[in-house]
Design a protein around this nucleic acid. Structure first.
Ligand SMILES: [Zn+2]
Ligand SMILES: [Zn+2]
Ligand SMILES: [Zn+2]
Ligand SMILES: [Zn+2]
Lengths: 130, 130
DNA sequence: TTGCTAATGACAACCATTGTCAATAAGGAA
DNA sequence: TTCCTTATTGACAATGGTTGTCATTAGCAA
């Protein structure tokens, strides 16, 4: 947790708490709704501001749902990708050195530089499979 | 072009024409704006409807920009991924059997089924590199 | 305790996307 | 060619996620 806040607030702690307790990716709107039905309510603006900060500090990963809504998740800081269950949201962090190397090779082969890549796998996990 | 339209219209042809002439990914809004300054103007709703149909028929690929806006591109129908220039939008279709196999293996190893995956590489192409 | 100011939250503004529906036009039938 | 059915269009409203505004609140260092 290397975020760049200069002060500690209960609102931010509440948001981070929700992220900690949630196993998969979750939207800002859902974090806000969840806290609405709890002891510590947090303004929607604050949720968004917190997510932006946590994203910048690399404490959370962002994933875009098909409709474009942003989903967030507390993640380890080492580079990795995700295997996500389409139903329950359960997320497994995956690493694959070969894929990293492949991305670099393909890019160089075509003369591209300053590479960034997206690799996500979505499917149905064992539990959700009937 | 195996779309499911039952009639041919000049509006749809105009939209497809724009996609043909555009080398990279382009948003519905931009297609609409481009046609606004041309002979054949097309309503925004029609642009969206056309993109939805072309996406369903697999004639165009969809890619989400960081801010969540959808970008479209006429693509070959064989499964592939993209190498995109962050600056000029130039797009190269890439295929990698190993990555396909890897996605399948990782999924199975974790008990996931009905897999779908996203693999995109963005960077700066040779021309745009200073 | 006090003072500075980061942080909050209610609210408005923004903007891509979808829904609505009366008017239009593609194209098969006659 | 003309007529008719209805797929398609487009202007406009509505939706919903996200960002901007700004007066008020509350960390925290002195
Ligand atoms: Zn599941
Ligand atoms: Zn990677
Ligand atoms: Zn493609
Ligand atoms: Zn370029």
């Amino acid at each position: 947790m290397s975020n760049s806040f200069t002060r500690t607030t209960k609102q931010r702690n509440a948001v981070i708490e929700v992220l900690r307790d949630h196993k998969g990716f979750i939207s800002a709107q859902d974090i806000h709704n969840f806290l609405k039905n709890s002891a510590s309510t947090v303004g929607l603006s604050t949720v968004y501001r917190t997510m932006t900060a946590l994203t910048t500090s690399n404490d959370v990963d962002v994933m875009l749902r098909e409709d474009g809504e942003a989903l967030y998740r507390l993640c380890s800081s080492v580079h990795h990708h995700h295997l996500v269950c389409r139903d329950c949201g359960t997320t497994i962090e995956i690493q694959a050195d070969y894929v990293e190397a492949w991305a670099k090779d393909v890019s160089q082969a075509h003369g591209f530089s300053d590479i960034d890549h997206t690799v996500e796998i979505v499917g149905i996990c064992k539990k959700c499979k009937k």
